[in-house]
C-alpha cells in the first residue's frame, strides 16, 4: 500500500446554488487535513500512524479505505488505485473504523456476521465456516447467540474486529482500535493485532497512544498538522533524540538561570509553569549522572527541586522533540 503526495482539503461553510450559478468568488474557509502525505506500507508489517487528535491520521485512513476522495495525490492499496477502483479496493481489506457502535445491537453477534458476510460477498458454502473462525479468533464463540446490546464495550470492539476479518483480507485498517477500552480489553486487542501479523496480514493502524505504537508497530509515521514529521521503526525514532533517559523535574521558587544551568548537563525538551511550579522535561544520556548535577544546579540558583521522575525514552518524547508539543495537547 502506498500514498503519494496525498492531500485532503475540507471546505467549511456552504456555497449556495445561486452563488455557484452567479460564479461568485468562493469565500469558504479551507482546512487542510492531510498535507502531502507520502508513505509505503510493506506486506506483512504493522504500520502505525501516531499523532494527536486532529493530526490527519483518520482522514488518511479514510482515504485509503475509499470513504473519502483525496483532493490531490494518489493512493494504491495492493496496487489498486483507491480513486479509480474503489470497489476492487474494498474487496481486499477489512476495516475497524467507526468503533463499537457500528453494530446492530438488536441482533446477535452471529446474525450481525451473517449480514456482513453477504455484503462482503462471501460464498454461502464458506459463510458458516468463516463466521465460526472469526468468532473463535476474537473469543466470542460462547456468546455468539447473545444480542450485542448485552455485550461489554470490549466484546463489541472484538466483534467489530471479527467483522473486519470475515472476508479473510490480506490487509486490515484499524482506526484507534483500543480507544475507550478498559486496560484488559485493550491488552487483548493488542495481542490479537500481533497475532494478525503472525498470520501474514498487513495492518495499518492509527493511534494516539504512544505505548501502543511502540509495542505493536514495525514502523511508525508520526503525523502532525496533516504531515508526516518522522517515519521509522520505534527504536530508530527514539534514537533520533539522542538521549537514553528522560528526567522530569518539578522546581519551586525558580531563580534566574536555573534552566540555563540545568541545560549545561542535559537537553531541555520542554518547560512549562503550572501550580506555582516549573515543570521541566530533560533528555539525558544518563540520569544517574544528571540528577545529582541537577540538584547542585538548582541549589546554586536558589531553587528547590520538589520532584524527580526518571523514565525511559518513549515515542511521546520523540513527538515532543519534533513538534514542541505533547501528544495529548
Amino acid at each position: 500500500m502506498d500514498a503519494r503526495a496525498l492531500t485532503k482539503v475540507f471546505e467549511r461553510g456552504r456555497r449556495t446554488w445561486i452563488q455557484r450559478l452567479r460564479r461568485e468568488p468562493d469565500h469558504r474557509e479551507r482546512f487542510v487535513a492531510v498535507d502531502g502525505i507520502e508513505l509505503r506500507v510493506e506486506q506483512g508489517e504493522i504500520f502505525g500512524m501516531l499523532g494527536p487528535n486532529g493530526a490527519g491520521k483518520t482522514t488518511t485512513m479514510r482515504i485509503l479505505a475509499t470513504l473519502l476522495l483525496p483532493t490531490s495525490g494518489a493512493a494504491r492499496v495492493l496496487g489498486i488505485d483507491v480513486r479509480e477502483q474503489p470497489r476492487e479496493v474494498r474487496r481486499r481489506f477489512g476495516a475497524v473504523l467507526s468503533g463499537e457502535r457500528s453494530l446492530y445491537w438488536k441482533l446477535t453477534a452471529r446474525e450481525n456476521l451473517e449480514y456482513f458476510a453477504a455484503l462482503y460477498h462471501l460464498p454461502p458454502r464458506r459463510t458458516r465456516e468463516r463466521i465460526e473462525s472469526v468468532l473463535d479468533a476474537v473469543k466470542l464463540t460462547d456468546r455468539a447467540d447473545d444480542y450485542v446490546e448485552r455485550y461489554s464495550m470490549g466484546m463489541r470492539q472484538r466483534l467489530v474486529l471479527a467483522r473486519a476479518l470475515l472476508p479473510d483480507p490480506p490487509l486490515l485498517l484499524l482506526d484507534e482500535p483500543t480507544v475507550g477500552l478498559d486496560p484488559q480489553a485493550a491488552r487483548d486487542m493488542r495481542e490479537r493485532v500481533l497475532e494478525l501479523r503472525s498470520e501474514g496480514k498487513t495492518v495499518l493502524l492509527t493511534t494516539h497512544y504512544m505505548e501502543e505504537a511502540d509495542q505493536l508497530c514495525d514502523r511508525v509515521a508520526i503525523i502532525d498538522h496533516g504531515r508526516i514529521v518522522a517515519l521509522d521503526t520505534p527504536t530508530a525514532l527514539k534514537r533520533t533524540i539522542q538521549a537514553e533517559e528522560v528526567v522530569r523535574l518539578e522546581i519551586a521558587a525558580e531563580a534566574d538561570g536555573v534552566v540555563s544551568r540545568l541545560s549545561e548537563n542535559a537537553q531541555v525538551a520542554r518547560q512549562e509553569r503550572a501550580d506555582g511550579l516549573l515543570h521541566l522535561t530533560m533528555h539525558t544520556v544518563s540520569a544517574r549522572d544528571f540528577v545529582p548535577r541537577a540538584f547542585d544546579a538548582a541549589r546554586a540558583a536558589g531553587a528547590t527541586i520538589k520532584h524527580v521522575e526518571v523514565v525511559p525514552v518513549t515515542l511521546e518524547d520523540v513527538f515532543l522533540a519534533l513538534t514542541g508539543r505533547a501528544l495529548r495537547e
Binding site: R90, A95, S102
Partner: peptide, 14 residues
C-alpha cells in the same frame, strides 16, 4: 444515526 451505514459502505457490495 446508528453508525451502521459506514461499515456497509466499506464492503464491496454495490
Amino acid at each position: 444515526d446508528q453508525a451502521t451505514l459506514e461499515p456497509a459502505w466499506l464492503t464491496p457490495v454495490a
